[in-house]
Design a protein around this nucleic acid. Sequence first.
DNA 1: TCTTTTGAACTGACTGGTCAGTGCAAAAGT
DNA 2: ACTTTTGCACTGACCAGTCAGTTCAAAAGA
Lengths: 209, 209
Amino acid sequence: MESSSAASGGSTRREATRQKLYEAAVTLIAEQGFSATTVDEIAERAGVAKGTVYYNFASKSVLFEELLRHGVGLLTASLREAAERTARDGGGKVDALDAMVRAGLVFIDRYPSFTQLYVAELWRTNRAWQSTLMVVRQQAVAVVEGVLREGVESGEFSDEIDVPLTAAALVGMVLVAALDWKSFQPERSLDDVHAALSRLLQGRVSGRH
Amino acid sequence: MESSSAASGGSTRREATRQKLYEAAVTLIAEQGFSATTVDEIAERAGVAKGTVYYNFASKSVLFEELLRHGVGLLTASLREAAERTARDGGGKVDALDAMVRAGLVFIDRYPSFTQLYVAELWRTNRAWQSTLMVVRQQAVAVVEGVLREGVESGEFSDEIDVPLTAAALVGMVLVAALDWKSFQPERSLDDVHAALSRLLQGRVSGRH
DNA sequence: TCTTTTGAACTGACTGGTCAGTGCAAAAGT
DNA sequence: ACTTTTGCACTGACCAGTCAGTTCAAAAGA
């Protein structure tokens, strides 16, 4: 027992295989969707035998669910880190929001396929992994909601804002802008995109230059 | 001869069948995704034999593509109408944007399944209907971009804003907020949601009450 | 008015193919 | 020694698309 001990690479052979499978699955499912992606394809792209997939995961949907948890774990960690960093540096809640927007962009820049897949599955109903998806969504949105709530308490934000809805809207803003960036103008720099969103976020849209 | 003449209601038997198939397909595909939805299911929900589906549409994906075109047609018409109405009423571009946000919410309120399905498929790559989707996306976003551009020209918006990206971000804001509304707090009123988004849009988030 | 014909619309059993998941003996890795 | 991976044949369910046949309302004919 105690297979994946080491805090270091954390690389048992098994761990490495699972990682390869995640990477293969994420791009294929992002492109084609869950149902249209076959286990044979995933195995082939990972350079692994089909049996290995079933040795490592109980089923195709379990592989997918663990992939979801894994990916959202990375995202929430990154968001939380961004919020805490600005707090340490004595920034206000607006700065925290801005830092989280950037963290979101960095994440999407690094894992575009995961983002694609996440958005594509999030609002579906009647699916096997529905509950996993809800949990995972709540984790991510909760970080944003937390910052908004603190901002309201400290008086930095109006207490009339609707915290859950505003959080969702902010997440949506970043998500859709970033997916469009990656899909339709991939040559643009992250700083560029971030600047445009900051401007929108801080209401510096109206009024001349 | 001359069976389907009348320009009137346009309600041939065929037309009615196609409409039933659209309605059945849109909810099923929104729930399960395109690949996971079978033609048998669509036919059954529409109360029609499987052969009828193929009598009316060349294939499953053609049915889907026509469904997309049909739905986005309704959306763009509604957005355009909202923008023009505010222009007639002597409103500024901010009012136009606000009216379009509301029009978007009304649309999503009326056709939640279509919206779900649209978001789920929009950023996929390597799919048969990819080009249809691009055309249809551009139609919708172009309306928002148009209003932003006019606002920049008239000096109402800063000329530093990035029109395509800001348009995408605005669409995303409404889309995600509305889907969350429908999925997680369906009891809230449209006016309520609209008010929250207006506040965000007009930068009335920071600052006390 | 009544009968016959026409053809668009629809039906549902059937086909050919695909795919998730299994089983297992042998090999490779640690 | 024991864990992990391989390779590959196999099964049973499921599904897109087909097609020979049915329905029926309206047009043509008598």
